[in-house]
Nucleic acid binder design. Structure first.
Lengths: 161, 161
DNA sequence: CATGAAACAGAGCTACG
DNA sequence: CGTAGCTCTGTTTCATG
């Protein structure tokens, strides 16, 4: 799909404020409200915009600690096996298979260090996991994420407060 | 600040769809539209909700490749030095200082592997960087991020298409 | 083919009870 | 917190370059 400058400007405006009115966005980029709506509808159908979301503060919700965990897995573990296993933990906010020594890298959000430890313990207990190597986040320097990831009760098990 | 179940349900609804109407959210959790608006206003003032943002597909915008880069820095490099340096790269979507051998971990989004390489080269050229260790993402397994991070033209230098 | 203007319906917002 | 009222926005239709 083809995106021109106006489409990019509209996306930029909506990333900044998803509740901005079509009229305001139009005024900012030089387009009428209906034209903006048409383009937004098109951007949604094409998959460029997948939805709209609230930006929440993990700290305010009690998720004050984060960690990155490298996973070293058994011989021929399938990525889908890893996915299925880590998906069950709401604390796993992001996971990906990577190049290098480790097989996968997980990003974990938890209420405190004890909580991180418990989650890692349970993940390490998975059959295919040979060993883990974790790094606790000391301070966040950059977070370009529009809506910072926060654990969600996918199986009704996560709630700090 | 104190958050009850209704507040959490409202946040959950807004993370799923930031453009949901107050009436719809109210109907889902058993509250009137005005009551929902009052709570949302309160959640914004308290800082639990920091804003609303469009969820965009990095792929659709041309950001098809991602990598994690560990930074090993000189003796007494300050976290703020690292922050200032990596902030200048729109491709650095997230950065944090961490425990362990490495000093910091960066999450990079780029258009292709060549692009990743160029960014790492430029970061490695920073005075305080001793060496880097990077891992290209092979496949993303989990992404709980409501609005997936996408490089933004913070200094007018980033645009894949 | 996309845009802008107009018209209707529906949501946001602000009292007040 | 819910209800009622006014205002503004979302949405569709239509005509135009």
């Amino acid at each position: 799909m083809e995106l021109d400058r106006l489409d990019r400007d509209i996306i930029g405006a909506l990333v900044e404020d998803a509740r901005a009115t079509y009229a305001d966005i139009g005024a900012a980029i030089g387009l009428s409200a209906s034209a903006v709506k048409r383009r937004v509808d098109r951007l949604r159908e094409s998959g460029a915009i997948t939805g709209f979301s609230a930006r929440v503060s993990p700290q305010a919700l009690g998720w004050t600690t984060e960690a990155y965990v490298e996973l070293f897995c058994a011989g021929k573990t399938k990525p889908s096996d890893i996915a299925l296993a880590v998906m069950r933990f709401p604390e796993v906010v992001s996971a990906a298979t990577i190049t290098g020594e480790a097989d996968a890298l997980l990003h974990i959000r938890a209420t405190d260090v004890r909580h991180v430890e418990r989650v890692i313990e349970r993940i390490a207990a998975e059959a295919f996991v040979v060993r883990t190597k974790s790094a606790i986040v000391l301070s966040r320097l950059v977070d370009a994420t529009p809506g910072t990831a926060v654990p969600v009760e996918r199986n009704g098990s996560a709630n700090p407060a």
